[in-house]
């Protein structure tokens, strides 16, 4: 198998790369992990990972500026339905629109808007930075990529660092939330897509388990 981590000039790709390599090795999953910005690598990948840190618009524009990457993504994710994992701003890009300074359209693969976190409690710091708990958005939720991972107060923490949040339109597409003065979307899923607001590559065992499940996922 082949896993491609899309390089569009954003974020700490090496961390993501190392976490995917480690998860594959620990769980004896036969996949080669590559970092690439070539459409051809995306078209031939079995798993597609979109990382991202920084500003929504910069990330979207950066992705768009890569030759053929957009079309390749549409092909493998939307038409071929291969497993896709968006991380942090890579998850937020799935939204319809990102509302920052000017506003920017997103991929619109999961309907919703990305907005600044504005806690009612003004003493809460922004960015939301550090380790926080995960809860199912709806008690009956489950997802194949969460198999064997305990969610809720008895589960492990996940590492977050972000100032914006994904407000998902269709609540069934929000799988996990975290509490930071309000419910904040922590994981989204729809068909062959998943995305996490937290950083699995920085979340120790919980993150590595999630990545391993993703690599074994057959949506």
């Amino acid at each position: 198998m082949k896993t491609v981590i899309i390089d569009y000039g954003s974020g700490n790709l090496r961390s993501v790369y190392r976490a995917f390599e480690r998860a594959a090795k620990d769980s004896v999953i036969d996949t080669s992990v590559i970092i690439s910005d070539h459409a051809n690598d995306i078209l031939t990948a079995d798993h597609i990972v979109l990382p991202g840190v920084g500003a929504f618009k910069d990330c979207y524009d950066g992705l768009k500026a890569k030759d053929g990457v957009f079309d390749a993504l549409e092909q493998v994710v939307m038409l071929d339905k291969r497993p896709f994992f968006g991380i942090c701003v890579g998850m937020q890009l799935l939204a319809t629109i990102g509302i920052e300074h000017d506003g920017s359209q997103g991929l619109n693969w999961i309907e919703g808007e990305v907005r600044a976190i504005k806690p009612d409690d003004k003493a809460l710091k922004i960015p939301h930075m550090g380790w926080n708990k995960l809860d199912f958005t709806n008690q009956n939720n489950s997802h194949p990529t969460l198999e064997g991972i305990t969610i809720g107060d008895a589960g492990l923490h996940a590492y977050f660092v972000h100032s914006y949040q994904f407000e998902v339109k269709n609540s069934t597409e929000s799988i996990l939330t975290t509490d930071y003065g309000q419910k904040i979307t922590a994981m989204v899923a729809k068909d062959n897509l998943i995305g996490t607001q937290f950083h699995p590559e920085k979340s120790q065992k919980l993150g590595l388990d999630l990545i391993a499940n993703f690599l074994n996922w057959k949506p």
Partner: peptide
Amino acid sequence: MSNFLIENQGNNKLKARV
């Protein structure tokens, strides 16, 4: 007041870091 006092955290589960 600290945001990390368990009794006052309310709907916030962020943890203090070491």
